Simulated scan of single mutants.
Amino acid sequence: MKSSAHPRVIERGILTSAYKREIRRNALETRRESLSKIKRTFQNQHEKFQSKAAAVLQVAFFALAIVFFLL
């Protein structure tokens, strides 16, 4: 194993601090992308549900208007 000493940091093994920083940064970016993807999916499903509910209500009101008009 490679060992290097720095006044503030002692590193051991093959993973350098630059590599570790890159891995942490990639993990944070992936987490952010995942959260935004989940949020976008939730919003899309919510919008689809709202549009379906609106269509059902419009058809129901139209049917009621026809019934009242024919009576």
Score class of each variant (00 low, 15 high):
residue 71 L to H: 15
residue 67 V to K: 11
residue 65 A to K: 14
residue 26 N to G: 09
residue 47 E to S: 10
residue 38 I to S: 06
residue 12 R to A: 06
residue 13 G to S: 01
residue 31 R to W: 00
residue 27 A to G: 08
residue 20 K to R: 11
residue 39 K to H: 04
residue 53 A to C: 12
residue 27 A to E: 10
residue 44 N to Q: 07
residue 4 S to A: 06
residue 33 E to G: 04
residue 63 A to N: 14
residue 10 I to Q: 08
residue 21 R to D: 07
residue 66 I to E: 01
residue 49 F to M: 14
residue 31 R to K: 05
residue 63 A to G: 09
residue 7 P to Y: 00
residue 21 R to I: 08
residue 27 A to W: 00
residue 21 R to M: 05
residue 9 V to L: 02
residue 58 Q to N: 11
residue 16 T to C: 02
residue 68 F to W: 13
residue 41 T to G: 01
residue 17 S to K: 04
residue 16 T to M: 04
residue 1 M to R: 07
residue 64 L to Q: 03
residue 42 F to W: 07
residue 7 P to N: 04
residue 33 E to C: 02
residue 65 A to G: 09
residue 27 A to P: 05
residue 33 E to I: 05
residue 26 N to Y: 06
residue 55 A to N: 11
residue 27 A to H: 05
residue 71 L to D: 13
residue 2 K to E: 08
residue 22 E to D: 03
residue 28 L to D: 13
residue 62 F to P: 10
residue 65 A to Q: 11
residue 55 A to G: 13
residue 8 R to I: 12
residue 58 Q to D: 10
residue 34 S to D: 03
residue 43 Q to F: 06
residue 15 L to C: 09
residue 66 I to M: 09
residue 8 R to F: 05
residue 41 T to M: 01
residue 41 T to H: 03
residue 59 V to S: 09
residue 47 E to Q: 09
residue 52 K to Y: 14
residue 14 I to G: 03
residue 17 S to R: 10
residue 12 R to E: 08
residue 43 Q to D: 08
residue 54 A to H: 04
